[in-house]
């Protein structure tokens, strides 16, 4: 990599391009705040930041319609925000408050929202793929013409669940789009150290799925690929696979000392950061001024501050209701 930003023109309507930029900035500011709050002990448990990978969730989810379903992983704050789950409800969930989007029972790794068909929030690697396959089956059987978008990392492709689910989805011709977020490391294990076949599209192709490999740092490329994939799934009713090549700028979780990768590698990828990339291109096209960017950023910061205030002001669930929501209320 040269470190030079590729100033490719943005082949999208200006309004949409600015929307994608705004979403990415919202996620970045939200998660930076989460990291600080974690340091202060106000968010506990595991916290997996998406910083660096924002283009994937934003570009892909903006290709979906409200009737579509989403299954994500434990690194899903960005997906939930982009899908339209409010920052307030997500932040309150991080705090464990009952106003959270999972009523405080899930935390960072288990964000859910029925209203936007956001099915989590799955913290068993690969565990979401069979679920997504089943959601797509339900939609197909009910003739809903919806698409289920299933996000997972390249690490999940070593799991049996990946292979079994792609086989089932292809065999039964189910409308599910498998979005692989390839950030090169399964926690601390590089792809080449864990997979005999590192060509991820070849794995999907083995199950007869059409497969695309896309620069996951370029939100425009992500969005175009996702639109193609989602439209194809909607038209054909058959599954599709997209590999987004991306990079996690922060550690795997807040407990990760990052012994497995070189700082220079991280710095090199940061030069291609998704926000940096899009901002530069929009400025060259005169679709964005620095002032515009500052306005977007200020609004994102304001949203985060309001979310923190909301989460802090929200009540704790009383211990008396500890065992609720294990079974349906009689």
């Amino acid at each position: 990599m040269s470190g030079v930003i590729p100033l490719k023109p943005v082949n999208l309507p200006r309004e949409l391009a600015l929307k994608l930029l705004t979403d990415m900035v919202r996620i970045r500011r939200f998660e930076e705040a989460c990291a600080r709050l974690y340091g202060d002990g106000r968010i506990r448990g595991f916290l997996h930041l998406y910083i660096g990978e924002e283009a994937v969730a934003v570009g892909a989810i903006r290709a979906l319609t409200p009737q579509d379903a989403i299954v994500a992983t434990y690194r899903e704050h960005g997906h939930a925000l982009t899908r339209g789950v409010s920052a307030n409800a997500i932040m309150a969930e991080m705090f464990g408050k009952q106003t959270g989007c999972s009523h405080g029972r899930g935390g960072s790794m288990h964000l859910f929202d029925a209203a936007t068909r956001f099915y989590g929030g799955n913290a068993i690697v690969g565990g979401g793929l069979p679920l997504a396959t089943g959601l797509a089956l339900a939609d197909k059987l009910q003739q809903k013409h919806a698409v289920t978008a299933c996000f997972f990392g390249e690490g999940a492709m070593a799991e049996g669940a990946f292979h079994e689910s792609l086989n089932l989805a292809a065999l039964w011709q189910l409308p599910v789009v498998f979005f692989c977020e390839n950030n090169l490391y399964a926690m601390g294990t590089a792809l080449a150290r864990s997979e005999s076949q590192t060509d991820l599209c070849a794995k999907a192709a083995a199950y007869q799925l059409p497969a695309l490999r896309v620069d996951g740092m370029d939100v425009v490329a992500v969005h175009e690929a996702a639109r193609t994939a989602v439209q194809t799934v909607r038209d054909t009713g058959k599954p599709y696979f997209v590999e987004f090549q991306t990079y996690r700028f922060r550690a795997h979780s807040m407990f990760d000392a990052e012994l497995y990768r070189d700082k220079a590698e991280v710095e090199e990828w940061k030069k291609h950061g998704p926000i940096h990339n899009l901002t530069g291109r929009l400025k060259v096209m005169a679709w964005l001024t620095e002032e515009d960017f500052q306005t977007i950023d200020a609004e994102a910061l304001r949203e985060v501050d309001a979310a923190i205030a909301f989460a802090e002001a929200s009540p704790w669930e009383p211990v008396e209701t500890l065992t609720r929501d294990v079974y349906a209320a009689p």
Binding site: G127, L129, P130, G134, L135, L137, Q142, A161
Partner: peptide, 9 residues
């Protein structure tokens, strides 16, 4: 797992 997803759906 697909049964679980279909029930969800």
């Amino acid at each position: 797992g697909a049964g679980i997803g279909a029930a969800l759906g």
